[in-house]
Design a protein around this nucleic acid. Structure first.
Lengths: 184, 184
DNA sequence: GTCTGCATGTAACTGGTTACATGATTAT
DNA sequence: ATAATCATGTAACCAGTTACATGCAGAC
């Protein structure tokens, strides 16, 4: 049940509406815990019922009302409790891996093309992360507190994307057409 | 819907029962697509109804009967179709990342201990993978076909675990207690 | 006599996705 | 006109987890 807690982390930094949270999740926390707006709305409702967050309806001009959520004391307690609790490492799920593994039972050219496509996507994301790193954390040695923690998860993203891109290259190298291959 | 297809890949290599598949999934394919036996049983049933696999009840001595599943022509077609189809990259989900990100709202010592625990687990798995690499793929340059594809996903596992361990080290280094910190 | 391995399953639940709906405002 | 952005939601569905049940064989 990490979504609840991811939302609590985000709301601890700044109160916000479901919509805003959904967009924050496209960055930072969303790098390693994504969520759709529907999911977020539902979970926020549940959290409100549990007393973990408080809501305040805010009227806006020209825009629909929004419900601004903020962390309640019970939510802060819950977050602290959860952080101290041990977690199992989330199992990996990678469809592209399944395809590479099963490549012999399908069109190898198609698999290679897919890997190339994913390589491009991950490389793009990596660049984005590296840009953020330069821009927001130019002197990482001096970071502390939340800024340091933000930096560390960005580093996780950078490492993950770097590794993925390298793996794609290895696959593309290994699956490249060779003499003796004959395709119709 | 990758589980169906992961099962088809596994069954294409060798027919087997749900139980056997569950254990095969603890290795190789399971490195990046895990599944419980219940999940596997359910999906196999669905696949049988769809005509993707055939079943044969096999009596055994001293052991309960087992249902041996094999890929049907429709299943092979479906697998080939799916392999050629583009996939979105599976979003990352990492609870430990959420904890590090929210470390300021909980007990930093506990987070550090968690990271250390996960580091150990991933290091252990990495060693396991590296052992498999040495044992089963001592001369990777000469691989082709399914053996090559198996090797490549093992490489994915090795890269992922290596990266994770390195990241844990980076976090442990960054979150180590420093002068000026005062905890009760 | 207790535990592990083989082998299959039901039932209840939780977490997450997809599709659809509404309605105003601003930018092209 | 039309699309995008802001903002919230319902409903149906799918995927995956957890708990429980059964029963025999062989090892310790």
């Amino acid at each position: 049940m990490a979504l609840e807690h991811a939302l609590l982390v985000s709301l601890s930094e700044r109160a916000g509406s479901g919509y805003e949270l959904a967009r924050r999740f496209d960055k930072s926390i969303g790098y390693f815990w994504s969520a759709t707006h529907q999911q977020i709305y539902r979970v926020l409702k549940r959290m409100e019922e549990a007393g973990w967050v408080t809501v305040e309806s805010v009227a806006q001009q020209g825009k629909p009302d929004k419900k601004v959520y903020a962390v309640a004391p019970a939510g802060a307690d819950e977050l602290a409790r959860w952080i101290a609790e041990p977690v199992e490492s989330t199992p990996t799920r990678d469809e592209l891996g399944v395809k590479v593994r099963g490549a012999a039972h399908g069109d190898i050219d198609a698999v290679r093309a897919e890997v190339a496509r994913h390589r491009a996507e991950h490389a793009r994301r990596l660049e984005e992360y590296q840009l953020s790193e330069k821009k927001f954390f130019p002197v990482p040695d001096q970071l502390s507190g939340t800024a340091l923690h933000q930096y560390l998860v960005l580093r996780a993203g950078i490492r993950a994307e770097t590794g993925y891109v390298e793996w794609c290259d290895e696959v593309l190298q290994a699956l490249r057409p060779r003499k003796g291959d004959h395709r119709p």
